[in-house]
Amino acid sequence: MIIALTVLLTVTGFFFFFATTIGLIRFPDFYSRMHAAGKGDTLSSLLMLLGLAIYSLHHFSFGNFLVSLKIIFIMVFIFLASPTATHAIIDAGFESGVKPWTKEEERAEE
């Protein structure tokens, strides 16, 4: 039961990691790449870490419970820090003058 839950959560997280990375490669400009990097990373790492935290409760003992607690602490930290890091990067790009890609300009170039 616990193993099935772990496999389900980690596979889902891995799929979203995969989609994030593909988006990081395929999107046309800096701002839309940041969409993939900021959102996909948060949810997929939360899912994978939750799966691993559940798995470490497999053989219940105080040490394993402490390990799960630490993994949940990492999850809380990522939940708070990932949007902040995304915002810091995109603000740096905006201030230093990276130009966003828009559909109108693409048509104008053609």
């Binding site: 395929r26 999107f27 046309p28 828009t102």
Partner: peptide
């Protein structure tokens, strides 16, 4: 958050990214 990730993943994995977005 779940909806957002599915949305981004859906756009990233479909062919022709540039046709689907209008930033």
């Amino acid at each position: 958050i779940v909806l957002a990730t599915i949305h981004v993943a859906f756009i990233a994995l479909r062919p022709n990214v540039k046709d689907n977005i209008d930033p």
